[in-house]
Nucleic acid binder design. Sequence first.
DNA 1: TTATGTGCAAAGGGTTTGCCTATAC
DNA 2: GTATAGGCAAACCCTTTGCACATAA
Lengths: 147, 147
Amino acid sequence: MKRMTDRQLRSAFNAAGLRLTRQRLLICRELAGRYDHPDVEHLYRAVKPRMRQMSLFTVYRTMNALESAGMAWRVATWKGHARYDGNVETHAHFLCEKCGRIDNVAAHDACREMASQAQKCVEGSVRRVEMMIVGECVACQTAAAGA
Amino acid sequence: MKRMTDRQLRSAFNAAGLRLTRQRLLICRELAGRYDHPDVEHLYRAVKPRMRQMSLFTVYRTMNALESAGMAWRVATWKGHARYDGNVETHAHFLCEKCGRIDNVAAHDACREMASQAQKCVEGSVRRVEMMIVGECVACQTAAAGA
DNA sequence: TTATGTGCAAAGGGTTTGCCTATAC
DNA sequence: GTATAGGCAAACCCTTTGCACATAA
């Protein structure tokens, strides 16, 4: 999600037919400030201390709403957990299969190529493009070598 | 999975420390003959009539084994179902968010670019690259327009 | 022969849904 | 004021695991 004032965020929500509640505002702010592509559980744990009555269910529902509105992307599933990204522009990720770490990747050329080609390659409509490099991160490689 | 004789398939399994059982053979053959990226349930339904004692659990375990061995890829998750592909070369997919249809996509240039760049873009090791175009297929667009 | 895989049942765990209350518009 | 969202609990459903038996090597 791009840097937005509360007012801009409210407009974005309303344009999507959604209301901007205090819970949703807090979740959006948390997601926008993160680059680790958190799952629902992590978002909940980060946000709960700042709002006592925040519930895990609300985070689930908020993420579904954001995804439907195109304001956030479900970028991967790791060990059954959905992982989210507030950055809704075509960009690539690296997923470590061992620890689940997801990094942004600067594969600009490939992303440009894919973004520009996507619509020509398919019959239907294109909503977004996901590019993921799957492997093992350095930390896990080091740990495995040491063990 | 490439076209293989039973003998070649057995060698591939054994090289991965796996045994080629009648169940696994049947599942592999089914997966190799499909281009719709089936989930476990669909594989099971296709294979069950040809082997009475085949169990759903075995399909789950077989797919996990194939994935670990790099003989099949879990290419997407749709509505909580893991979807599999026997073709383990870098290629792109189109996923229809409405109906879950997954097609192969001929985005050769982008795939080549991504495959050649991937290792340069990340610190860790690269196991595979997934490229997915997400949108709505023509059938669903038509259905929506007609409704 | 012996480690590996299968079948079954039951548990596990992330996610969704129904209902009532609270709140954004 | 009214439709929408939150809170809670219970249900859902895909998937995994433990154990005894079967089987590939």
